[in-house]
């Protein structure tokens, strides 16, 4: 649904996005992660035909960016990083304006549908200036959706929201994928990305990782097993010496071992530990979070950011 090839954008001497090759499939939520200044917003702006790429190409729903911009604008919805509204106009009037600009048939009906869906119908006649940040963010989502776009770009949709509002927005985004919409989601919230996204792209001017969250975790860390010992001995970690063990370390009574495939390797590991005279109390899996992956990636990559 979205494809980029060597997509690059420079601002003067500064490169914001370099040589980005990415593909987002139809009905997928792809998370775009990266530190401040990584080029997430710039990427979204290029794909939404707001900024021209310096070089490289991109396609959205078969239309090429830079050649067919009007067609792209009609079928994408954008939630910008800081979504503003005409604060003197009412909630409904704001949404109606955008619906009409997109040429939505039955604009009024569609506006009502989305205001109801996002729980704003009761406040339809209030001016936007009176809305809280959370409600404004919901209105921004309604605006991004009011013309039923096939492709959505959501730039940090939950930033600055309280946990409850953030949850409401997150649940709503979850529904979008089930409507077969394709979503590119920029976020700094890693649990959120892990919960919502089928795949994650980590960007730091260049693309530094791409994959399903569990894939990324496995690639980065293998799988960790934690063994709690009754008689920890300092030299135990080095003594294991099995081919599939990538790393092992002892910290107090906890031995942490990285293996390739726990189903296959753990029984062998346990047998070996017993042979070495270890007294085993518990064996458990160490869950890595996407945050661990992310932080590890950031340490390993040096980019301008």
């Amino acid at each position: 649904m979205i494809r980029t090839e060597g997509l690059t954008r420079r601002f003067g001497a500064r490169t914001a996005v370099e040589d980005l090759a990415l593909e987002v499939r139809e009905g997928e939520i792809l998370g775009l992660l990266g530190p401040n200044g990584a080029g997430k917003t710039t990427t979204v702006r290029m794909l939404a035909c707001l900024l021209a790429p310096t070089s490289g190409r991109a396609w959205v729903a078969g239309h090429e960016v830079g050649r067919d911009d009007q067609a792209i604008r009609r079928i994408v919805g954008v939630l910008t990083e800081t979504p503003g509204f005409y604060k003197r106009l009412s909630v409904r009037r704001n949404l109606l304006f955008f619906a009409e600009l997109y040429g939505v048939a039955d604009a009024r009906g569609q506006v009502q549908r989305y205001l109801e869906r996002l729980g704003l119908w009761d406040r339809r006649d209030e001016v936007v200036a009176t809305l809280s940040k959370g409600l404004r963010q919901r209105l921004a989502l309604a605006r991004a959706l009011v013309h039923e776009p096939k492709v959505l770009f959501l730039d940090e949709p939950t930033s600055g929201l309280d946990p409850e509002s953030a949850r409401a927005v997150r649940e709503f985004i979850g529904e979008l994928a089930s409507e077969r919409r394709t979503v590119l989601l920029c976020t700094h919230n890693l649990p959120e990305a892990e919960e919502l996204c089928s795949r994650i792209a980590v960007l730091r001017t260049r693309l530094i990782a791409l994959g399903r969250p569990d894939e990324l975790k496995r690639q980065m860390f293998g799988t960790r097993v934690m063994v709690e010992l009754g008689n920890p001995q300092p030299e135990l970690a080095r003594a294991i010496n099995l081919p599939f063990v990538k790393a092992a370390s002892l910290d107090g009574s906890i031995l942490t071992v990285e293996v390739d495939d726990p189903d296959r390797d753990n029984p062998v590991l346990v047998r070996r530990l017993v042979e070495l005279g270890a007294e085993i109390r518990y064996v458990s899996r160490v869950e890595r979070t996407l945050e661990d992956v992310y932080l590890e990636l950031m340490e390993g990559s040096d980019g301008p950011a």
């Binding site: 939404a48 503003g84 005409y86 955008f98 040429g103 605006r143």
Partner: peptide, 18 residues
């Protein structure tokens, strides 16, 4: 200036308005 002040330029530019 109102458009700038209220941060509505980017959403406006995202529409098919030429």
């Amino acid at each position: 200036v109102g458009e700038k002040e209220q941060g509505t330029l980017e959403p406006l530019l995202a529409t098919p308005l030429a």
